[in-house]
Design a protein around this nucleic acid. Structure first.
Lengths: 267, 267
DNA sequence: AAATATCGTTCCAAATAATGGAACAATCAT
DNA sequence: ATGATTGTTCCATTATTTGGAACGATATTT
């Protein structure tokens, strides 16, 4: 009974948990929220919400605009800036992303599993005008991204299946995988080939090939990461993407080795 | 007695304030901190720090690595990502940054005053620099950056002087302004010319020209922002930078107008 | 290898901050 | 003007944090 079963146990971490839920509300809203909006969405009593927002604002995590709306604060940017620039994994991987970009001319992404999401840690994008709204720090579902599926293949099969069972599959495009079975099936192929495709499963018109970054240090099985090359479907075919599989996989392996060399022998 | 005098009143916002101070410790450390490091630097009792770190970790704001060190968590990246992408001011300004970059070929920055700092909100960089992505969200002192000094010139003179009186001048390079007098003096010139220079005052080898973004909406005097063109001193002279002053200032004005048009008439 | 210092974790009564309901003030719509 | 909605303040109750100390686990020294 050492671990929480992880069903849907969203435990409030006391005070902080409640504050963070409010912050999430503000941060994830598609448009600026007024006090009442936040109040009704949070479901908590007036007085509490009011004071909590005040606290968040005092710390600069949110900002109360003169028009009465609350928005995410600059402090978030500052904190993230440091978190990102000092992220060791990212630092180690960066030169390999650049090299891969040089070799292919296309957009290269580095992503990590975090809960049920993929978080993009870094990218080097192509000069071309096509706007992928991928963004550093953005979270996307695992099951519809190349990086997500590739990273999933790093986990022990039981672990992967356990996670997959918890997913809720939302259809982003006609090609989005529709359920656990389809994903499990594809995972087999990914494990065999060593790379994954995203066939316009998340954003229409965008596809990619991704390779998992092997975890060569036995102790460090917490972070599952992957590397991808992405591009617009009208310009780059899946066949063309597959052509780059060797370079992609070798870059992924190289990152894994570099990480093991620097992070592994520590302590 | 409506406003807090703003002397040096770092009020702890109850629980959150203490948590944020710990988070700052972790985020701003140059190397990963162990429990004891954080404990000693915070000055608070063992039990409290331990529990607080636990709470921060549960929310993903920090992460406890297997080697016992704490680091900033991915959640910070996710939150900031949304804060950034939905930032209206940034969205409005973005096309003007791109245009300015096209016209000059050099790196263009957009920055905001936040407390005693300048925070970089966006940038379009020249082809070489990959590393500078870390600059978005980065905070730098007002007195040694072009954007900082330009933005300062937007404030009412008394307000500017009041703020300047609170600065502590740290010498980053031989050219860094050494005190309030030098800054006040330069501010006069900036007000007259409508643009500011950074003559390698923050980073050796980097200089820039910056222009304040006029606040054309009388009500919105909270945000002071500026625009800059920066480059390496060995390649671009100050004279060359000054050549671009008209384009820079006209872009700044255009942003001010666009902001007023979209943010002003609201409510 | 044993002894010792350091580091990280857990526990609990006392102090403190958050809670949440209601009354109040300000603003907007009719 | 009037009534409805939105935002702010207050305070006894409640729940959380506090902080000291004791404990086990690791490193370091003798």
């Amino acid at each position: 009974m050492a671990e929480a079963p992880g069903k849907s146990g969203e435990k409030d971490t006391g005070t902080l948990g409640k504050l963070m839920r409010l912050l999430d509300l503000v941060a994830e809203a598609d448009e600026p929220l007024r006090f009442s909006d936040i109040l009704s969405r949070s479901g908590e009593p007036r007085g509490s919400v009011h004071r909590q927002l005040g606290h968040l604002a005092e710390e600069g995590l949110i900002e109360l605009q003169p028009d009465g709306t609350y928005r995410p604060g600059l402090r978030l940017l500052m904190l993230a800036s440091r978190a990102w620039s000092r992220h060791e994994f990212r630092e180690i991987a960066a030169p390999y992303l650049s090299a891969l970009h040089e070799a292919t001319g296309e957009t290269v992404h580095l992503g990590l599993l975090s809960g049920d999401d993929v978080v993009y840690l870094d990218k080097v994008e192509s000069r071309q005008a096509v706007r992928m709204h991928s963004q550093i720090g953005r979270a996307s579902p695992i099951y519809c991204t190349g990086i997500g599926k590739a990273a999933l293949s790093l986990l022990a099969p039981e672990e992967a299946s356990r996670r997959i069972a918890g997913f809720t599959f939302r259809r982003f495009t006609p090609a989005t995988l529709s359920g656990p079975e389809a994903l499990e099936e594809e995972l087999k192929v990914i494990r065999r080939d060593g790379h994954a495709f995203d066939r316009q499963e998340h954003e229409p018109g965008i596809h990619c090939i991704a390779a998992p970054i092997p975890r060569l240090t036995p102790g460090r099985t917490e972070t599952a990461a992957a590397l991808s090359i992405a591009g617009p479907a009208f310009r780059i075919s899946l066949k063309q993407l597959e052509t780059w599989a060797p370079e992609l996989m070798s870059a992924a392996r190289a990152i894994g080795e570099a990480v093991a060399a620097r992070l592994g022998p520590r302590r």
